[in-house]
């Protein structure tokens, strides 16, 4: 079941680079990362590629395969025809370091900008009580393996570098949603999502959801619910009035 496949891999660094063609052996059951590794071991020992788990769990091996953001370790070779040339390029929304490796520090910077979970001060460790149905929504978002494919595909920053300042990106919208839906988080994430993290720049075109290898429903379950929550506090005069009155009565 061994065959030879045509690969086209981007080689280069920040200064320059190009797509290079390789013919390389492929065995039954292999994924793109296996082939890249074989390339490393036999033809291009210095080919730079990031990977860790090879099981879709760590989110290291993100790249673009035939123009689509994907995990190399989860892209099976039998999804391509024998004749097809398989093009592998680095993530295009981030600065390239070398070959298939990009500088993803943007994402770590954004992570730092979102205030951490703030639990209730009166509960000591071991005293937290949460119902399963109340944690499930946030648990979906915590499946995120930080592959940053969603960040890479999001046109807001992919096509507009200048938006990186103001826009946290889908990975961090699910983080905000996770915290806002966390049954014991005490901070209000809604206004911040709109005013500090650029939620309004998302035009819900759903590319993030399309590429997420964890199948997190980023748009439907995080971004749109957050947009609705933002409307609650910022753009809905009736609810705004309601909350004022309720607060008054609560006194």
């Amino acid at each position: 079941m061994t065959r030879t496949a045509k690969f086209r891999v981007w080689r280069g660094d920040a200064s320059d680079g190009a797509l290079k063609d390789y013919n390389i052996e492929v065995n039954e059951g292999e994924v793109v990362l296996d082939v890249i590794h074989r390339l490393q071991a036999t033809q291009t020992p210095d080919l730079a590629v990031r990977w860790n788990c090879k099981a879709g769990k760590c989110g290291s091996c993100s790249a673009e395969i035939n123009g689509r953001p994907r995990l190399m370790c989860m892209t099976r070779m039998n999804t391509f025809t024998d004749e097809e040339t398989i093009t592998v390029t680095p993530l295009r929304a981030f600065p390239v370091i070398r070959d298939l490796v990009t500088n993803v520090s943007f994402n770590y910077k954004k992570a730092l900008e979102i205030p951490a979970f703030a639990g209730p001060a009166h509960l000591k460790p071991g005293e937290y009580r949460m119902e399963q149905i109340d944690v499930e929504r946030s648990q979906e978002f915590r499946k995120c393996i930080e592959c940053f494919l969603c960040q890479d595909t999001c046109h807001v920053i992919r096509d507009h570098e200048e938006n990186k300042e103001a826009f946290a990106g889908p990975r961090f919208f699910i983080r905000l949603a996770e915290l806002d839906m966390h049954p014991l988080d005490t901070l209000d994430r809604k206004r911040a999502a709109q005013e500090d993290h650029g939620l309004g720049m998302c035009n819900i075109t759903k590319c993030c959801t399309e590429v997420c290898p964890e199948h997190i429903k980023i748009t439907d379950n995080a971004i749109i619910p957050m947009k609705e929550r933002v409307v609650d506090v910022k753009y809905d005069p009736v609810r705004w009035l309601g909350s004022k009155i309720r607060r008054r009565e609560g006194l």
Binding site: A14, L19, T89
Partner: peptide
Amino acid sequence: TTPGRAKI
């Protein structure tokens, strides 16, 4: 054309 990104 963004500087720093892979030139494709």
